[in-house]
Design a binder for these strands. Structure first.
Length: 431
RNA sequence: GUGAGUGUAGCUCAAGGGCAGAGCACUGGUCUGUGGCUCCAGGGGUUGGGGGUUCGAAACCCCUCACUCACCCCA
């Protein structure tokens, strides 16, 4: 048997409906904050990601799904949405340097990692980006949007971590100081950290190897190196959050795993998720748009991991309800004459706004009843020779066992009857 | 990429070298074109796959695949 590829989660009923319902909760919050949706391609030229995410990151180094097409061009399944969205925004001239543009996306992302709780090879993100003349307040607004989703779903055990990674002026100064410090303590660091001292020193701050911890703890802190502008940026974000009563923790060692971040970065972490605890993250990126040959303006954005959000909402018992698939009526045709009549009835009932299923394969009446129950039908219509001869439809109410005859033409009285019963059910859903 | 644990019927799980089982689900009968409940019966399995040890393997050994969790990394 051919099975799904590793790290892929099939969503079978009613999972997919719950998933889509949760997705639209998130989409509503983004829409209310003015983010317009864009449709991003599933794959891009691989150069887009190597240039934006950074060559020394794990995502680019070992997690991308790469392939060549028949023309020999090199592509990658998108491992994240920001690069792709910026490419789209630049290509279609959606960025106006003096103004701001708000865009959002949603869809599957792909990374070749070992699957784990909350980590899949195909996973779903919803994200939003603010591009152009952005301010610290726009960073706050991003956090407000995520926080509102968190509030709405009553997500358990969530902490917001904030950091400021500095800007083009102060980050290099910090980087230099950090490298100097790390080089002085090389012998105490793990092999990866020794390598990263040269390639990507900020990532050392993220290391979890116990032996590295005492060294990392005493390492210079980015917050102390912030220039005047970045310091004000940072303080503005912090005081803004305090004004809004959004609790947060400043974590100077929060270094996002993508190289493009500057200034404010953040992570929403939950202790209810297990090892993969970050369910939303993002930050500002000053140089990225220019780096991708767009206007030299900053942007800021975030992404939410839908599977992780779903796990949390499930724990909180706040997963939105899937739609009701129960049918208003099922039709069992008996005999060849009844089949075409059943088919046209189905069409007429559906166009009248009712839900209706045909049960065509039943060789015995009892099978038909069982199928109608499985379909959740309130009414059942059995059409045989008698009914056709008398031009009469006998409708059975499966709840009350009551049987009521209706004329075949016109159908209006039957439709009205079903509607009245259905609307009654909607008014008082106790059954 | 590394490590640990787990793979038995559609689902949840028993059997720990000697006949592969239960509950739920499914099918049929009880009940001829009128269901749900009851009772009765039935179909279903190369025990993830391959190899080995053994008179005999679901069980023990090796390889492999998958799942789960952790490392790592990230949403």
């Amino acid at each position: 048997m051919i099975h799904a590829p590793r790290g892929i989660k099939d969503r079978i009923p009613p999972e997919e409906d719950r998933f889509l319902a949760l997705l639209s909760v998130a989409e509503e919050h983004l829409q209310k904050a003015g983010f317009k949706k864009v449709g991003l391609p599933i794959f891009e030229l691989s150069a887009l990601f190597t240039r934006s995410i950074g060559l020394e990151t794990d995502i680019v180094e070992k997690e991308m799904y790469l392939f060549e097409d028949k023309g020999g061009e090199r592509f990658a399944l998108r491992p994240e949405g920001t690069a792709s969205l910026l490419r789209l925004a630049i290509q279609h001239h959606l960025i106006e340097p003096a103004r701001i543009t708000r865009l959002s996306y949603q869809g599957p992302m792909f990374r070749h990692e070992r699957p784990q709780a909350g980590r899949l090879r195909q996973f779903h993100q919803i994200g939003a980006e603010i591009l152009g003349a952005i301010t610290p307040q726009d960073n706050i607004d991003l956090l407000v949007v995520i926080d509102s989703i968190s509030q709405k779903l009553n997500l358990p055990g969530t902490t917001l971590f904030i950091n400021n990674m500095g800007c083009a002026r102060c980050r290099p100064v910090f980087r230099e100081a950090l490298v100097e410090y790390l080089e002085a303590h090389q012998s105490g660091l793990c092999v990866t950290c020794q390598k990263r001292t040269a390639t990507n020193p900020l990532r050392v701050l993220d290391c979890k190897v116990p032996d590295c911890q005492p060294i990392i703890e005493k390492a210079p802190s980015i917050i102390d190196f912030l220039c005047e502008t970045s310091r004000i940026h940072h303080e503005t974000v912090c005081s803004g959050l305090r004004n809004l009563s959004i609790p947060f923790t400043v974590n100077p060692r929060l270094v996002r795993g993508l190289d493009y971040y500057t200034e404010t970065t953040f992570e929403f972490v939950s202790d209810a998720l297990g090892s993969q605890s970050t369910w939303a993250a993002g930050g500002q990126y000053d140089g990225l748009i220019g780096q991708l040959e767009g206007p030299d303006v900053p942007g800021a954005g975030f992404a939410i991991g839908m599977e992780r959000l779903s796990l949390l909402a499930e724990k909180a018992g706040t997963l939105p309800l899937p739609p009701d698939y129960s049918q208003d009526i099922s039709i069992i045709p008996l005999g060849d004459l009844a089949v075409p009549l059943a088919q046209s009835l189905l069409r007429d009932l559906r166009s009248a706004g009712l839900s209706a299923t045909g049960i065509f394969g039943a060789t015995k009446i009892k099978q038909g009843f069982k199928q109608a129950e499985r379909d959740g039908s309130r009414f059942l219509l059995i059409i045989g020779e008698d009914e056709i001869a008398k031009k009469e439809l006998v409708v059975k109410d499966l709840l009350t066992s009551e049987q009521i005859p209706f004329p075949l033409f016109p159908l209006t009285s039957l439709i009205d009857h079903i509607r009245s019963v259905r609307d009654l059910k909607k008014v008082s859903p106790i059954s």
